[in-house]
Write a protein that binds this DNA or RNA. Structure first.
Lengths: 114, 114
DNA sequence: CCGACGAATCGACGTCTGTCAATGAAAAGA
DNA sequence: TCTTTTCATTGACAGACGTCGATTCGTCGG
């Protein structure tokens, strides 16, 4: 939902030294590592994939629990991590929360691995 | 060194479903997560960066310990992880082992985040 | 109001991971 | 051969992370 707190979004906000071309400061390496760690989980990768290929590009939590084979609290846990990283956004409508991927965000990360 | 064992290199050998376009199977998500976890560490990111911007594109371990601010065993530990992932290669010459980055390998990972 | 439902939070547990000191192995020099 | 240098391996420890059951918080229907 738009009301959710975003913490780690600032990780690589503006464009990018690119790992193999710049010497990469200690602070920046830490930021990049945190951002990549969000993606380094099979459940979160499948979440991104499921959301991107869902009807209308979005899905509620209850539709994600079963295909992932994880408990509802676990799925909510990963959704929060992805949300905090800015990779997905949630929109609460009635009793359901509809999540959708933010492809631009993934593109930012991709461009750092130049 | 060329004699070193490579284990996790098979992670995403041939080209790529791309996270946001394919539904991403459970097995493939696991492989991708393992591959990304190798990059999700500040010391390993700085290692890649240091090697890429080193003289002649290579450096020995003793040249890497001090700028990283980690113990020699710790640096060797991370070098092994990067080597097993195919992101760097080591070449033993005399008493020194010269490491260099493998940019193609990083490009493979990058392309998965399409 | 009250009960049912969807989702987030909490608490606890087991596992994985980064780190270092100590040790081991290989190579060069005296 | 003995010593020194360079790097890898081992063992141990602390902290972080994924997972689930139980609980709590909102929201809708009756």
């Amino acid at each position: 939902m738009a009301t959710r707190t975003r913490s780690a979004v600032s990780a690589l906000e503006e464009c990018c030294p690119a790992v193999l071309s710049a010497p990469l400061s200690e602070e920046r390496a830490e930021e990049l590592a945190v951002a990549l760690a969000v993606l380094a989980d099979p459940v979160r990768l499948r979440l991104l994939s499921l959301l991107a290929s869902a009807e209308a590009g979005e899905a509620c939590v209850c539709e994600l629990v079963e295909p992932l084979g994880r408990s509802q609290p676990t799925v909510s846990h990963h959704l929060k991590i992805l949300t905090d990283a800015g990779l997905i956004v949630g929109d609460k409508r009635g009793r359901w929360v509809w999540y959708r991927a933010v492809p631009d965000r993934l593109g930012q990360l991709r461009s750092v691995l130049a």
